[in-house]
Design a binder for these strands. Sequence first.
DNA 1: TAAAAATACTCCATAGGTATTTTAT
DNA 2: ATAAAATACCTATGGAGTATTTTTA
Lengths: 304, 304
Amino acid sequence: MMIELRQLRHFLAVADTLHFGRAAEQLGMTQPPLSQSIISLEKMLGAALFLRSKRSVALTTFGRQWLDHVRPAVEGVAALTDVALRLRTGMAGRLSLAFVSTADYSLLPRLVERYSAAFPEVELELVEATSDIQLGALSEGRINAGILISTRSSLPPVLDYRPLLKEPVVAAVPEAWVEDGRLDVVDGHLQGDGWMAHPLIIFPARVAPDFHDLVLGFYRARGHQPFIRQEAIQMQTIISLVSAGLGMALVPASLRNLARTGVRYIPIAGETPELETGLAWRRTDNLPTLSAMIEIASTLDPEA
Amino acid sequence: MMIELRQLRHFLAVADTLHFGRAAEQLGMTQPPLSQSIISLEKMLGAALFLRSKRSVALTTFGRQWLDHVRPAVEGVAALTDVALRLRTGMAGRLSLAFVSTADYSLLPRLVERYSAAFPEVELELVEATSDIQLGALSEGRINAGILISTRSSLPPVLDYRPLLKEPVVAAVPEAWVEDGRLDVVDGHLQGDGWMAHPLIIFPARVAPDFHDLVLGFYRARGHQPFIRQEAIQMQTIISLVSAGLGMALVPASLRNLARTGVRYIPIAGETPELETGLAWRRTDNLPTLSAMIEIASTLDPEA
DNA sequence: TAAAAATACTCCATAGGTATTTTAT
DNA sequence: ATAAAATACCTATGGAGTATTTTTA
């Protein structure tokens, strides 16, 4: 024979009211079966829970001590219904989100702040990864969503996508270059095409093909070919190399939040390419926490 | 409709085996009602727990996350049976034990050490109280047992009693008295009756009548009347007064463990009265933890 | 004598059983 | 062809109801 929840609820009701009649009423049943239920519970336990004289009911010492254990146990089970509801609606659960290093400086903090304010019970797992790694992780189901640099057209059809941020590209240049007049800076903007001859540090094409293409396309459109001095997969690394004077780089404008001695961020005069960062996820992934994340992401100002 | 334990156990079994047939076997039932049970559970929750193709069963994401909450909740309820058993047998629970201050120096530490080694889950509530206070607390049910100084014959009949320790009385005297030769000490023992003329510090009769009578009886048997300089209810206080040179005191031998500068404990030559400390409890109190305590107490060496 | 729990019985809801069908491999 | 889950239907246990008795304050 096994203790059932019903009996425990019966016990709690009687313990609370110390009156079989009223307890039964509270439970929506009549008194006799409640007496039966308690008696059978006492038999199972091998000890009396209540001392009943015909005029009054009191807990035995054993009953009082057991009560202290029963209440939390029953509440634990009762809570399962709420837990299920919160899991279903995305109020609780887990979400694994990858992001490219460039999202670190504006997009990710804003998104995470909003999301975890709205869903504090969700365990948000954040992993930094390049766009190509993210695409693999998404299709293999290792992450639920990714903040990456791509365009809708270049994504596999199993993924859905929403743009989050459009930002211009700015030049990250060694401070020395500005001071020795190697660059033509007017009104805080890079002028002309002269700078295009200087050595460039860039993401490898494999890692972020769309970003790579964007930069090369920009040079080509102005009739130039970049002198690629070095490739690096981390934004941090690229900026370090710039700071060391190895070359310049074209980076998303939000990277200005990554201040570094010896590095200046300078907008480019004229038509500049815009870089799009967006959120991608599996169309078939109907995880409630993911839906909530997409919802929140959609409310972010794409120009900020 | 309310979730019942049975369904949760069903869920756990299927989640563990990922096979309705084997899970049913494990549960001692057949497969069809198990399928029904899970289906009804899923309906209650409003979400699928399992993805079943005809050849394989897998948890949904929701199922996996909910499982993490269900298992501890069900285990919590299952543990109630064990808890009840431990409460019934005195393996767990509470015990309120009072003790006189003189028990502090030998009896109580030995008893508590043994008891809590044997019953580590029992919450032992220790309160220091004089014998008369303990008798009141016992009859009013505020404590379950008391270590007190009394004799079986002087206890009310509702209480049961077991002697724990018989020890001689020794004299606690100011060190100065030994040095200035005011006391006749030979072979480390107080000789003769001369010391009986010195001022005495003693427990009030109200607080420990048996101890009080014992001391007075001792003087009377030798044809003396003590000069009572001061009364005090705490052993600590009595020893402080001795240390201050206010007088001497007759105290249980185990009090030698309470070292104090300026105080010397000296045995009395010849026939000395023995003091009995024992455990008292209500005959009608059938608290399992109390029975265990009486059991342990009986194994203590009464001469130690 | 009245309030409240226990006892005696009756009933039906449902947990679980049996037989069968469906479906994916 | 077969293993495994779902469906359909049946059975019976036991949880809950009604009527009554017992008890003690």
